[in-house]
Amino acid sequence: MRRLSWTSALGGLDLAAPDGSVTLREADARSLLRLDVPASEAVAVGQAIGAPLPEPGRAAYARAPRGPARETEVAILAEDGGYLVMARFGLAAALAAEISSVLAATPHHLVDRSGALSVLVLTGGVDHILARICGVDRSALRPDDVVRTMVARTPATLWWRQERCEIIVGASRAAFVASHLAQAGRALGLPAAALPAHRLVP
């Protein structure tokens, strides 16, 4: 059977400064689930997913010992009043089913956002670049802090990691944000990522 092919928003963007000190790339496809659930269910949900639900503004990252994502990396970001569950691509349906099963008797809200969000991974020059398109106080953040903010005038979630930052934006806005990130990194040698040319009605 011929499969319906899928595409990422940026077609696998991969930029690097000539010396490799700064890179900007579109992360490989991931399963992304948005979950809104009462805090009282955090433990149960964490067990279902295989990673604990983090405190607000934090990320938890673990290799799941059980559940649909068993033996794979799972990350959970507590952002914007809810959770964003990240797992290997292809696990979204199974994870959603597992979570829904655990929460069958609890009001919750679970949406598969795989493909709806783009994850841009910035390494090197993070402070320099984000200071130019984002108002976040970098010095106040620790590794695995998660911030909902505006990046290049666009709503985004920042996940601070060791030596890098993951920028999660709506797929339809990814090209615009990536262009501004590349522009902000030009002084560090990052190549341009021009917006695709569009002919506009005069």
């Binding site: 290049a152 005038r153 709506g170 806005r173 917006l195 695709p196 040319a197 569009h198 506009l200 009605v201």
Partner: peptide, 28 residues
């Protein structure tokens, strides 16, 4: 600042944009 020309205001593109932009004239 950097918000000039095509990058002046946030813009969004539909998933089929790669097909459209080969053939279409766009509007906001």
């Amino acid at each position: 600042g950097p918000y000039i020309g095509a990058m002046a205001e946030p813009v969004r593109f539909v998933p089929a944009d790669p097909w459209h932009r080969e053939r279409a004239v766009y509007e906001a």
